[in-house]
Design a protein around this nucleic acid. Sequence first.
DNA 1: ATTCATGCAAATCGTTTGCAACCCA
DNA 2: TGGGTTGCAAACGATTTGCATGAAT
Lengths: 151, 151
Amino acid sequence: MGKISDSFKEQLREKGYKLTVQRQAVLDVISEHEGEHMSSEEIYENVKKTYPDIGLATVYRTLILLNQLGLIYKIDFDDGRSRYELNREKEDHRHHHLICTECGLVEEVEEDLLESLENQIFENKGFIVKDHKVKFYGICKKCGESMKSEK
Amino acid sequence: MGKISDSFKEQLREKGYKLTVQRQAVLDVISEHEGEHMSSEEIYENVKKTYPDIGLATVYRTLILLNQLGLIYKIDFDDGRSRYELNREKEDHRHHHLICTECGLVEEVEEDLLESLENQIFENKGFIVKDHKVKFYGICKKCGESMKSEK
DNA sequence: ATTCATGCAAATCGTTTGCAACCCA
DNA sequence: TGGGTTGCAAACGATTTGCATGAAT
C-alpha cells in the first residue's frame, strides 16, 4: 500500500486533483487483483465491499483518471467491455496477452522482443514508438492437448 | 471486382448463406476504400450512395458475417467504434498499425517480424499462435518534425 | 471558503434483436 | 416454395454527463 499510495498522492497534487477515499479504494482493488484484468463493473462490485456507497460513475471517472496518470492500463479483449490492469513499473516494457479462442483464457507473456521491430519502424517511417498493445490469438496448452486426445 | 466476388459467392454458398445485393454493396465499399479503416457508420453512409434503401442493421449484420468469413478484419482504435479493413490475402501475415498520439494519424507497417516471438511463446507456454493484433502508439514523422522546429 | 469530486438518474451512442415483409436459390 | 435476409423500430449495455450536494485543501 505504501509505495503506490505515495506516488499516487504526489501525482494527484501535481495536477491539482484531490485524494479521495474513493480514488484510493479503486486503486487498492486493482492492486489487490493483479493479473485479473477486471472490468469496470467488477472493480465497482469489489470496491463496494469496503466502500458500499460508491457510485458506478465515480469508478468510471476514477479509471479514466488513473489511466491518464499511467497508473493503470486499459485493455480490450473484444468482449464489449474495457478491462484494466496495474502498471507494474518494474517492467521496462509492457507485457503481451495471449487469448485462447477456444476457452477464452488470457495469459501473459513477459517477453517483449519488439525492440528490433520498433527500431525498424523508426528507420523506415520516422515514427517514434512510445507504447504498444499486442494481443495473440490462438490455442492454449490445455485446449491443444484436449484436442489432440479427442482424435 | 471479379476475384473478390467469385470467392465471396463460393464462400457464401458453402455455408448456406445467400448472395444479396446488400452484401455485395458492403463488400464493394470496403474494397474501394482500402487503407481507410472505415467505421460501420461510414460504411453505411457510403453504401447508401449506391443503395439508398439499405438499413444500418443490415450493414452491421453483414460486417459480422464478412468478419467471420475472414474477408475483412475488425480493428479497434480506441475511439469507441469498430473499424474494418479488407483482408488482403496476398499478405501471408497481418500488418500492424501505427497510431500517432498527437494527430491521430493511422499508418500501416507491412513488416511482421513476430515469428520468432510466436515461436518462443509456443516453446515457453505451449500456446499455438494463430493470429495477432498489434498496435504501436507514438509520434508520427510529421508531428515529430513540427515538435522539433517549435523548440 | 473555494474548488474539485461524488452520487444519482437521465442521457448517449454504438450495436443488437424481434418481427413482419421480402427475396434469393 | 421456403428458409435465409432485410428494414424498421425498439431494446440493450457500456459508458458519459448534468446537477445539486458533499468533501478535500
